[in-house]
Design a protein around this nucleic acid. Sequence first.
DNA 1: GTGGTCTAGACCACC
DNA 2: GTGGTCTAGACCACG
Lengths: 125, 125, 125, 125
Amino acid sequence: MINLDNRSGKPIYKQIVDSMIDLIFLGVYPTDSPLPSVRSLAVELGINPNTIQKAYQELESMGITYAVAGKGIFVNSTTDVITKRQSELRQQLLVVLHEARLAGISLNEVLSAAKYEYREVTNND
Amino acid sequence: MINLDNRSGKPIYKQIVDSMIDLIFLGVYPTDSPLPSVRSLAVELGINPNTIQKAYQELESMGITYAVAGKGIFVNSTTDVITKRQSELRQQLLVVLHEARLAGISLNEVLSAAKYEYREVTNND
Amino acid sequence: MINLDNRSGKPIYKQIVDSMIDLIFLGVYPTDSPLPSVRSLAVELGINPNTIQKAYQELESMGITYAVAGKGIFVNSTTDVITKRQSELRQQLLVVLHEARLAGISLNEVLSAAKYEYREVTNND
Amino acid sequence: MINLDNRSGKPIYKQIVDSMIDLIFLGVYPTDSPLPSVRSLAVELGINPNTIQKAYQELESMGITYAVAGKGIFVNSTTDVITKRQSELRQQLLVVLHEARLAGISLNEVLSAAKYEYREVTNND
DNA sequence: GTGGTCTAGACCACC
DNA sequence: GTGGTCTAGACCACG
């Protein structure tokens, strides 16, 4: 479920943080459910447990999870976390839009991309 | 014209690279016009000349400028540079849109932001 | 394995870049194997680590290697790098051949030199 | 007859030196004939006379030309100059051939390029 | 331990 | 004056 890319230049621990945030927002890990243990995730991804630990600490310091000693790490209620995340993304969005306009990308193309990302996915499974 | 932010975590030399790209795309530095000299820009921004040098070398390796020893650094014709820049930005845009959707930002908000960035600025000065 | 020549006028960092490309093409450093660390190579060659760093960053910007912070610098898969390198060398070859003809070097001598460079080295060790 | 390229990174004065050597070897300027004057060539190429001066000084220090005060700069008998030039080019040729082999360019391709450069040009003008 | 960034100061070639 | 290279030494983030 988590794909790491050594070549991307993005620190491993940060890739894990971002992936976890996505998975939580997607509902894979609902409120009060446990994240995979440090050791199991380290084995699964084939990396050093210290790196997982660091990612989990960042998630906790962001207020996204809480740790229960001896039990594990659990997902917080996401309401206020989401608003913080949203404001970050709004900022990023404005920066990219600004750069896109300067580089000559048309408004139409931007609108199309947005509509495509938000398209209704009708799934008959 | 260039604002540096020490706290942003973004390396200074990279901030300069991005600012220069913007200024070139804006037409502040047209084709074959010289950029500020390494030393003068270093004084102006209050940083070490080596840092400017590094930024300028990155611009050259991106094909945006060319250096003439003893004369200065000059802006290349930008046509093919722009297309490369655009494809980078398209990629970034898709990532941000994806994250925005996951975080629950509405399509309407995204569309509004895009239209605002691309608004006609009618200036009556 | 790397010989530097201070007198050649060629910058040290560029000598390192070219030597590394040769060693990689020779298979001394295969795909995904690590290059010597910045500090160790600096000690070995008796030069400043910053110079090694500059050489390694050029290799990365050429797409020949990728860096993983905290781990090392690794060799990329070389397929498309080789084609780029080949086209550069074809260009250089044409220039040298042209000059050689103008300077009165005979075709026979050029052909002999080429055949000598490409001779089969049968090694009975 | 002389084409300068500001973007090439090669110093202007060196471009002039190399072009002049070519023109002399081609017979455009035979033994004891005068080169264009510093001032006229500077005007023709649209560059600073100091740069021409430097190029001409290098030609003289290479033994290719000799200066007669108040009259101009004249081409030397080229015999020993040519042998020096040839040994330089032999060296360059060997380097390029070596790199070409390492990069996987075939012997056949090299031979073809050489034969093409040395082809008989039968001119019916 | 690793790579990445930055500073301070020096020297060179070029125009 | 210009850009380009190199050294020495420092600090940081990462694994």
